[in-house]
Amino acid sequence: MDLAKLRQDAAALLADGRAGLVIGFRERAGACVPAFVTDADQADALVYDDTCIANLAAYLRKPEIRQRRPVALVARPHVMRSLILLKAEHQLQGDDVLVLAVGDDTYHGVLTLAEAERLLNETYADLATDAQVLAEIERLEQMSPEERARFWSEQFAKCTRCYACRAACPMCYCERCIVEKNVPQWISTAAAGHGNYAWNVIRAFHLAGRCIECGACEAACPQGIPLMLLNALLAREARDQFDARPGYDAEAEPVVGSWNKDDDEGFIR
């Protein structure tokens, strides 16, 4: 990948004022962490590799970041999908964001959102669910409901309710999350038992048909809860049942929130 070109582009965007902020990645003690570049001469700190999993689109909900629009983001294809989906959900205007597009060992240059959408559909139209995640979903589906309940019981028991999963997700942009509403209180606040079950299930469900499977939530979870199993299951169902392809069409209606007369109702008596 042409890192030098990426740095050069980032510097140019800042130098000529096309971007007020470049968000990318830098290296710190052997790990890749988000970088916030405001001056052209800092652009050389930018790096990119496969370990840069954080979905930088999540930063676009922060008011202090939005103040610096247009913002340029280093974005792999999944992150580009997040941006397209944010636009489809009216969270972004087309000119709020520029994309420093990276993917498959290639640097694609600086793209507008519309250009990123075209690139996605031309080059990255078939981003598949991680094979390991799919295999694990299938393994769980072979289990009895009791075994699955036990599996999730153990997983959710780890949850401390730090909400790192929510924070890391660009699609979790609600100003007040359902889990923080207490009149009425739908989800128990205790970081245990039924509260943890309800939180993790509802978090996943609120992303049904919206998750683009970037993996940022699972990577963010300090406790190692396999959140992508839930997300990928719903992504698969949304795809199989409703042909959902979130993040490929900035004009698309939300999957849950629209309907089709011919939707499956074999399960309804």
């Binding site: 916030f36 930063y59 202090e64 401390t160 730090c162 790192a164 890391a168 300090p222």
Partner: peptide, 17 residues
């Protein structure tokens, strides 16, 4: 403070650990 906190996404991972 602005510069130091740009990256923070506002979760509780640090405080809980």
């Amino acid at each position: 403070w602005d510069l130091l906190s740009y990256a923070c996404l506002g979760c509780g991972a640090c405080a809980y650990a």
